[in-house]
Amino acid sequence: MNSKKLWKFFFICPVIIYVSLLIALPLIYILLISFFQSDYYGGMISTFTIQNYIDVFDQVYISVFLKSIFIAGITTFICILISYPFVLAISHKKPRTQKILMTLVMVPFLTNSLIRMYGWLVLLRKSGVINQVLMGLGVIQEPLSLMYNMIGIIIGMVYTLLPFMILPLYSSVSTVDPYLLEASSDLGASKMKTFFKIIVPQTLPGLFNGSLMVFTPALGYFFIVDILGGGKMMILGNLIKNQFLTARNWPFGAAISIVLVLITSLVIIAYRKLGGKMEDLGGA
């Protein structure tokens, strides 16, 4: 190994240590204990079993999986619906304005997300600002149930995860040559056709990247479900949290986690099979 290679290795070292200690090792640990047995006192017995995985496919848990995927899917879809018009509008602005607007997108990150969720409580509850205004304007007679249900959870999810959709989509959209949009319109395409035939195909990597970054956390953000769902809803996030902290059944919690990792991996594999490139995902 010559000195240049040695230097390269030296600089990569922190990343290698970080990834192996904080990501790879815990994951391997989780994988291992998912095949352990639990005892009645919250401990683990190191005898090999696949019972945990069989338990995951219990009807109760299947329905949690499906519900989680449903919430995450709806969240992702709404994020896409909001983000596309937003980034397309921004991309036509002057570079300076673009920077300012994109910075504003990031501003909510300055506050702890838990605190922001409590903020939503104030807005969404029966006597909250939104209901008061709507009733005051005479739009509605009875206050709407905006929280402690699915609507509340989805509002919270979309609100928290929207920047993760906007950022990759924005960097994807800004690579689309504006002349292409003019050419498309010049050749007789309507705005809708231009969007679906030119913009969407070219921003697919950003769209997928954003979807992955919204969909995956949406499966697991238990605090949103706990606060805005009023503790009545169970998604994968709370399920895993409960198994580890409340039920103290670590092996079963680990098994659910592994299944969750597999689901996410399947999505990425599907993306690659459909011709997507991994490099395109890294860019944003």
């Binding site: 040559d177 010049d186 050749l187 070219q202």
Partner: peptide, 20 residues
Amino acid sequence: LDPKYREVNTIFQNYALFPL
């Protein structure tokens, strides 16, 4: 009139071919 209704076509300086 919107460009799509005009019976003219434009050849752009950078060609503006659809890359995909």
